[in-house]
């Protein structure tokens, strides 16, 4: 097995992980992440599995395609995140269902709260009005 094949196989794994994440996670941000991984996996396969020149140099055509794909992925991510935030605004939850409980679940663990800036909104209450317009 050459390193090329290794990357191609990693690409297959990442693609399927992305698909599972897109379908399997409910939180919209993880779905966006999942779609991104599907793209990265396909790009890896495109680059690593394409035939090589005799000198072992990479084929420029897949390189150009992956470049294009990366730009497309950024565009799609921007739109998807924007829409996800809009869903959060209109339903109170970044989920696709209208019928989820609107109550905010408590933060899971103490360490979680400390390691991330995802603090409960109460200490930021003052800032809320400023972004409301």
């Amino acid at each position: 097995m050459t390193p090329l094949t290794l990357y191609a196989l990693a690409g297959a794994g990442i693609f399927v992980l992305g698909l599972v994440g897109t379908l399997g996670r409910g939180h919209l941000f993880w779905k966006v992440l999942g779609v991104n991984f599907m793209g990265s996996g396909a790009f890896l396969i495109l680059m690593a599995a394409s035939p090589r020149l005799p000198g072992g140099e990479a084929d420029p055509v897949p390189q150009a395609m992956v470049l294009t794909g990366i730009v497309v992925a950024v565009s799609a991510t921007a739109l998807a995140l924007g829409m996800a935030l809009r869903v959060a605004v209109r339903t109170g939850r970044p989920y696709l269902s209208e019928d989820l409980p609107t109550k905010t679940p408590e933060p899971v663990e103490e360490s979680d709260v400390e390691s991330s800036p995802d603090r409960p909104p109460k200490d930021r209450a003052g800032g809320e009005e400023s972004t409301a317009h």
Binding site: A8, G11, F15, G18, L19, T22, L23, K31, V35, M38, G39, G41, A42, F43, I45, L46, A49, S50, P51, P62, G69, A76, L79, A80, M83
Partner: peptide
């Protein structure tokens, strides 16, 4: 949007396999 993006990615996977 998600259906559309995931569908495109599956299509892209097919393109990658066919090109390989």
């Amino acid at each position: 949007l998600f259906i559309s993006l995931a569908g495109s990615m599956l299509f892209l996977l097919g393109v990658a396999l066919l090109y390989a």
